[in-house]
C-alpha cells in the first residue's frame, strides 16, 4: 500500500516536467541506480509504461514521442524475454544498443545545456560595450540590405495580418415613423364603439421601431384623452377604445 502511494506521488511529477521520453528514461535510470551500460530492459520498460499509464489516468496529454518510446521498450522487452533464434538474422544486434547510444548522446547534450544555462546565468549579469546599447536600443534603426531574413519578413507579414481587420461598414437605413403618421394610421383602425388590442395595431412580427413608435403614439393619444385603455394585469393585452374627444378635437 505504501509503495502504491509512493508510486502515485512520484508519477505526479507529471510528464510536463520532462523534456521528452529520453529525459524520463534517464530519470528512471538514475532513480533506480541503473548503469546506462547495463539496462535491465524488462524492468525499465515496466517503469516507463507505469508512468505513461498513470499520466493517462490523470488525463494528461501524452505526447506521441512517449507512446513511440513505450512501444519501442515493449518490443525490446519481448525480444529480451524470447529465446534468441539463430535463424532470424538479428541475433547479433543487441536491441538495447541503439537506445543506449541515444541515451548517452542525449545525456551529453543535456549536460551541455546545463552548462549553457550556467553561462547564461553569468552573462545576463554582464553588460558589454559595444553590445547591449546597440542591441536593445528603443530607437528604430535602418535595416541594411542583407540584414533582414526571411523570418523577419514572415514576422512582419504576421503582425500585419494580426491587426484588427476593418469591419465592412454597413449603412443602416432608419425607417422613420412619426407620431403624426401613426395617428393618421390609427384614425382608421380605432373605430368608435369598437375595442382593438395593441397587438392588432402593430400587426404580426413588427419591427422594434414600429412597436416603439406606436406605443409612444398610444401614450400621446391617452394624454390627449382621445382614447381610453385597459389592461387586465401586467403584460396582458392592452385594449384600446376611441373616446368622443378624438372627433371633437381633430
Amino acid at each position: 500500500m505504501k509503495e502504491l502511494t509512493v508510486l502515485n506521488s512520484s508519477c505526479r511529477i507529471e510528464l510536463d516536467a520532462f523534456e521528452g521520453p529520453l529525459d524520463l528514461l534517464l530519470y528512471l535510470l538514475r532513480r533506480d541506480e541503473i548503469d546506462i551500460y547495463d539496462i535491465p530492459v524488462a524492468h525499465v520498460a515496466d517503469q516507463f509504461l507505469k508512468y505513461i499509464r498513470r499520466a493517462r489516468e490523470l488525463d494528461l496529454n501524452v505526447a506521441s514521442e512517449y507512446l513511440l518510446m513505450a512501444a519501442t521498450l515493449t518490443k525490446m522487452k519481448s525480444k529480451a524475454l524470447l529465446p534468441t533464434s539463430r535463424f532470424d538474422g538479428e541475433e547479433n544486434i543487441d536491441p538495447g544498443a541503439e537506445l543506449r547510444c541515444q541515451l548517452i548522446l542525449y545525456r551529453t547534450f543535456r549536460e551541455i545545456a546545463e552548462e549553457l544555462q550556467r553561462s547564461e546565468e553569468v552573462w545576463t549579469e554582464i553588460f558589454t560595450s559595444p553590445g547591449e546599447r546597440e542591441r536593445w536600443s528603443t530607437d528604430s534603426f535602418e535595416i541594411e540590405p542583407g540584414q533582414a531574413s526571411l523570418l523577419d519578413l514572415l514576422e512582419a507579414l504576421n503582425s500585419l495580418s494580426e491587426k484588427e481587420p476593418e469591419l465592412p461598414s454597413q449603412k443602416i437605413q432608419r425607417t422613420l415613423l412619426t407620431i403624426s403618421e401613426c395617428i393618421n394610421a390609427l384614425e382608421k383602425k380605432i373605430i368608435f364603439g369598437k375595442t382593438i388590442s395593441f397587438r392588432d395595431i402593430i400587426g404580426p412580427e413588427p419591427a422594434r421601431s414600429r412597436i416603439v413608435s406606436y406605443f409612444i403614439t398610444i401614450l400621446e393619444l391617452i394624454r390627449r384623452g382621445w382614447i381610453s385603455c385597459h389592461q387586465a394585469y401586467p403584460f396582458s393585452e392592452i385594449e384600446l377604445q376611441r373616446t368622443e374627444r378624438w372627433s371633437v378635437d381633430s
Binding site: E114, L116, Q117, E120, T124, E125, F127, T128, W136
Partner: peptide, 29 residues
C-alpha cells in the same frame, strides 16, 4: 569589448528593463 563586472548586474539591468528578453527554457537550451 569592455564589460561590466557581474557584481553590478542588478544595477545595470535597470537600464534595459523591459527590453532585455527573458532566460531560455530547458527545451530551448
Amino acid at each position: 569589448r569592455i564589460a561590466t563586472d557581474r557584481e553590478f548586474g542588478d544595477v545595470v539591468s535597470q537600464l534595459f528593463e523591459g527590453r532585455k528578453p527573458g532566460k531560455l527554457s530547458r527545451a530551448a537550451l
